[in-house]
Design a protein around this nucleic acid. Structure first.
Lengths: 216, 216
DNA sequence: AAAGAACCGTACCGTACGGTTCGTGTTGGT
DNA sequence: ACCAACACGAACCGTACGGTACGGTTCTTT
């Protein structure tokens, strides 16, 4: 039985894990190490050195190395917040702007170095059964975002601006139109083209095509 | 300077690395280990044991562990072959069938356990500079496929069946419509839904939507 | 049949890292 | 001023794995 001081399974998905500021500072250092050098660059000794804390504190706070990694994922996920939709007062133009802004925010998060590093980390640990990290990233990252997207799209359908049967299916199409293969290419170490870095334009064209498929 | 007996950069992208049958058998065992347990399950000692060869031979053939990993990637990539298009004799219906078949083949390869394992491997090693594995997978996998797709789509445009400016851009949209977020979810250890496992239906709907965007 | 190359199995070495323990200092409460 | 809790840093241990060396075996070539 490997027990960890930080057990995500006992905390509600939307409840912040409530790290102390000191712990958050350490986790920020851990994230920096991950972004710079990948998982093997994040050693307990190295983190203790760069964060000016002791290994003993790390193990006291996070249980073991896996708990530390899970804490980094949860910590970073807690910092990503998609703005809630303004409400039902929006007309067609502002709704479409909301959708475009959502897509741009999605791409901004997804293509950020922190997100890429954590996705790489979770993916490389997604082989063993009882895979905490992958599930953690899915439930605290993707599922949150997709729930947010579904409510946004359903609002558009309710106003007669969009037409689809399954909100999840519609969201997946929007995701595919916006992300294409860029995410996997970035994860593999490729660099985005100049056009792909213009997230405003990318979001606009994706939403344009989405409307041609699902506009009312 | 880390030298390896297997240096992919000196071989043409379309030239088979020409492993001996014995070496290919060992690489097949290595791939099995990777699929079952991820990168950390592929140890030199473990591979020597399961493949009934000596560690000395592994180092003689592949230089070092990185060379072994690169050889596994190159070996598996060499086994994936997309059928070339039948030619210019096709009418609109059969051309569309060709596109659909291409998409289905793409999904079959991408969602296969071997591809997922190698993608996980390359991604987890895509942090260090001079990243061989990620580039290797991109060059011998994705770029091959996208070249094949571009020529297919351009044939369709030439026949007046499709309408687009940039073949690469059109292919990316087709990719996004077909793959959506399924690839990244599978990489993270999620399981595809029943509908997502029906690759024929997935390919059909993706091509349908693609035609609504790019059909002439 | 003899020579030589290739290869297997195993034992071995060095290192890196996860995890533990301990001595010392620092801080905050009474 | 005293004490208890906390945490820093360093030393230490066990293990796992990459890489090497070597003796014995099989297969090929002449």
């Amino acid at each position: 039985m490997t027990s960890s001081a930080f057990d995500i399974s006992t905390s509600a998905p939307d409840a912040a894990p409530e790290f102390t500021p000191r712990q958050e500072a350490v986790l920020a250092h851990a994230l920096t190490l991950l972004v710079e050098g990948g998982e093997k660059a994040l050693t307990t000794a190295g983190l203790a050195r760069t964060a000016n804390c002791s290994k003993e504190s790390l193990y006291k706070w996070f249980g073991d190395r896996d708990g530390l990694l899970a804490a980094v994922v949860a910590f970073q996920a807690s910092k990503v917040h998609f703005p809630s939709e303004a409400g039902a007062t929006a007309d067609a133009q502002t709704f479409r702007r909301h959708v475009t802004a959502f897509v741009k925010e999605l791409l901004t998060v997804l293509f950020g170095e922190s997100s890429l590093a954590l996705n790489r980390l979770s993916i490389s640990n997604s082989t063993r059964e009882e895979n905490r990290l992958g599930n953690l990233l899915l439930v605290r990252g993707k599922h949150m975002i997709s729930a947010r997207a579904r409510s946004l799209l359903e609002a558009g359908r309710h106003k007669g601006l969009l037409k689809f049967d399954d909100p999840e299916e519609a969201y997946q199409i929007l995701y595919g139109l916006a992300v294409r293969d860029i995410h996997i290419r970035l994860l593999l170490g490729d660099t985005a083209s100049a056009a792909e870095r213009d997230l405003d334009a990318q979001a606009a064209t994706a939403v344009d095509q989405f409307y041609r498929l699902y506009g009312a």
